[in-house]
């Protein structure tokens, strides 16, 4: 059972890695990151459920990961807004071109 769920988790994580690396748009990159966090949450809970005897710190870890996700999203959107306002850029390539 644990193995099966971890394989699902790995699959979601893999898709997240693909998304974060392949997408050009800032927000789509964030979607990749969120998928990776999604997989992490799943993995933590399955470990909590199957291997730790129900240690509440497992749950706490999930909550912390969720907090990280909220922080990532809020700062991500704020930065996207600031970058768009300053540079009218919405994809990473545009930023690279502007470096010099």
């Amino acid at each position: 059972m644990i193995e099966l769920i971890l394989v699902f988790s790995a699959a979601i994580f893999g898709i997240g890695v693909y998304g974060a690396l392949s997408q050009q748009s800032f927000v789509m990159i964030m979607m990749g990151l969120e998928l990776m966090i999604n997989a992490t949450v799943l993995a933590i809970v399955v470990f909590w459920w199957g291997t730790t005897g129900g240690d509440p710190r497992g749950q706490l870890l999930v909550v912390v990961v969720l907090a990280v996700m909220a922080i990532e999203a809020a700062m991500g959107f704020a930065l996207v807004t600031a970058v768009y306002r300053a540079r009218k850029a919405d994809i990473t390539e545009k930023l690279k071109r502007l470096r010099n």
Partner: peptide, 10 residues
Amino acid sequence: AGVGSFLLLA
């Protein structure tokens, strides 16, 4: 990278 990380983790 995606497939690799999946295979590794799985």
